Amino acid sequence: MEKLNSIIFYNIDKAIRSYRNFAQRQLKAHGFTITIDQWLIIKAILENPGITQNEIGDLVFKDNASVTRIIDLMVKSEYVIRKVHSEDRRKTNLEVTESGKKIIKDVQKIVEGNRKTALKNITKEELEIMNSALLKISENCINTKK
């Protein structure tokens, strides 16, 4: 029987979880209360004006309930505001506040440092191969209709 650490998808998940835990610890160690998920959602809103909550969920791999909960916390923290959609009152537009933009800017150096630490001793060629392989895995899974 194969061992867990010989299964590529186990190792991918382990790497992702290890990185997220490390990145969250670094934010906390530098006095920030923002979470990795909040950071991802603010970035998604900034990069995609007019994005819906469902689209955010797809982009950051979270279900709608989780996205709603995270956005509620960010509204309370005054990183994001909700505005009623001008044409459909059932919809809301999300806008990043100045405070939200500032927190993204303030944590950028930590994020860059986290990536540098995580990718230490990995060559540019290895990164390119890994990225290519991961994109192929995603395409294989997305394009399969079984």
Results as ranks from 00 to 15, higher is better:
1 M>L: 09
2 E>C: 06
2 E>N: 14
3 K>E: 14
8 I>K: 10
12 I>N: 14
14 K>C: 12
20 R>P: 06
22 F>W: 04
24 Q>W: 06
26 Q>N: 05
29 A>P: 02
29 A>L: 04
34 I>C: 00
35 T>G: 02
36 I>Y: 10
36 I>R: 01
36 I>G: 06
38 Q>N: 00
40 L>V: 04
41 I>T: 03
43 K>C: 02
47 E>S: 14
49 P>G: 00
51 I>V: 04
51 I>Q: 11
51 I>W: 07
52 T>P: 09
54 N>P: 02
54 N>R: 10
55 E>P: 04
59 L>E: 08
59 L>S: 09
60 V>H: 01
60 V>T: 05
68 T>E: 00
68 T>V: 01
70 I>L: 02
70 I>G: 01
72 D>Y: 01
73 L>E: 11
74 M>W: 00
81 I>S: 01
83 K>C: 01
84 V>L: 12
84 V>N: 13
86 S>K: 15
98 E>T: 07
102 K>R: 13
105 K>A: 15
111 V>K: 11
114 N>W: 03
116 K>Y: 08
117 T>Q: 11
118 A>E: 12
118 A>Y: 10
120 K>C: 01
122 I>M: 14
130 M>F: 13
135 L>H: 05
138 S>C: 13
139 E>S: 10
140 N>F: 12
141 C>G: 07
143 N>G: 12
